[in-house]
């Protein structure tokens, strides 16, 4: 009797609730101890399991804290004004990391300049124009797969296409384009989410007033979605700033005696500098403080950007509600 009623109440196909509920009932009847004690045993199990779940979540936080702690504890002494404003000296055993900071900023800005317009326009197509169907699915498949391409494969592609085929050589431009291709899915994802959050009634109201689709997109939809899209842009910049493998063959060099003066120059970059100092420097142990210091600067840059994006987004969500 009871089971049939459950079935009509919950008619979601994939889960056979009824049989499961029966099982619970049967165990209850078979053992039939006082209800309260069994309840408490089930509650106890739940408490223990939830304890582990909670532990798992906190492991993430602890891991983040440990990494940040070690970088800060070992790196903060290296951070001086000279460190931030001078070029490396004495085969990179002394001096600062200014060229790396400049290179990383150049790369991430370049990447975002490439990826941002393409990403937003793609998101506009996906969310405003595309109708469901095979073509849409194919484009989504392409974006998802692009997001999954390993960073080192982007590096290979950048080397073969931008550096060699298009004859850009190892340069800021080639690196920025490679990173731009890699950041594209991030921007598309964030922009699409922001566009989805714009209520359909805005579009209907605008169209109902005799606006064209394009006017509706540019005057109502984009302005409303802009903060969310910008958040995605920040995340894209931070992603590009932290990547190493895509720029190893396309843009970055061990050491460059001068600052880049054009986009066709090779550059130094923070992540690659860490890698080089830590694995292939002339005096690996002696330059540890420099390595920690560089890592700290990179972390501060990347996590700072992310934190800003997260806080901004949280404020936005609160305002939307």
């Amino acid at each position: 009797m009871q089971t049939t009623r459950v079935e009509t109440m919950v008619n979601f196909p994939p889960i056979d609730l009824t049989t499961k509920i029966e099982k619970i009932d049967q165990t209850k009847n078979r053992n039939s101890p006082p209800a309260s004690s069994q309840m408490s045993r089930r509650q106890l199990i739940q408490k223990i399991v939830f304890f582990f779940f909670r532990g798992a979540a906190w492991v993430n936080g602890v891991a983040l804290l440990i990494i940040i702690y070690f970088m800060v504890a070992n790196g903060w002494r290296a951070i001086t004004w000279t460190f931030l404003t001078q070029a490396p000296k004495d085969s990179m055993t002394k001096g600062g990391i200014l060229p790396c900071i400049v290179g990383t900023l150049g790369l991430s800005l370049g990447a975002i300049i490439v990826a941002f317009p393409i990403g937003i326009a793609s998101a506009i197509y996906l969310n405003e124009y595309a109708r469901p169907g095979r073509i849409l699915r194919l484009i989504r498949l392409g974006i998802n797969n692009l997001a999954g391409v390993p960073s080192v494969v982007f590096g290979l592609f950048g080397l073969a296409f931008f550096c060699i085929y298009l004859k850009m050589g190892v340069s800021l431009l080639a690196g920025a384009l490679t990173l731009g291709a890699m950041t594209l899915p991030v921007i598309i994802g964030a922009s699409e989410e922001a566009l989805k959050a714009v209520p359909d009634t805005y579009r209907e109201a605008s169209l109902g007033l005799g606006a064209t689709k394009l006017q509706t997109i540019f005057r109502v939809v984009l302005p409303t979605a802009l903060p969310g899209i910008l958040t995605g842009g920040i995340l894209g910049i931070s992603r590009a700033a932290g990547e190493t493998a895509p720029i190893m063959f396309t843009a970055a060099v061990f050491f460059s005696p001068r600052m880049p003066s054009s986009v066709f120059d090779e550059i130094m970059a923070l992540p690659y500098h860490i890698y080089v100092l830590a694995t292939a420097g002339t005096e690996i142990e002696a330059t540890r403080p420099l390595q920690y210091g560089t890592a700290l600067v990179l972390i501060a840059l990347v996590l700072g950007l992310n934190l800003a994006a997260i806080l901004w987004r949280a404020r936005l969500r609160k305002r939307m509600q």
């Binding site: 209520p199 209907e204 109902g208 606006a211 109502v220 409303t224």
Partner: peptide, 28 residues
Amino acid sequence: RSRVGMVLQKPNPFPKSIFENIAYGLKV
């Protein structure tokens, strides 16, 4: 659509000023 206007169930002003909301249809 500009000859046949529409008012929906839930008020749906744009997140713009009162003036801009009404001027919108004229501007587009």
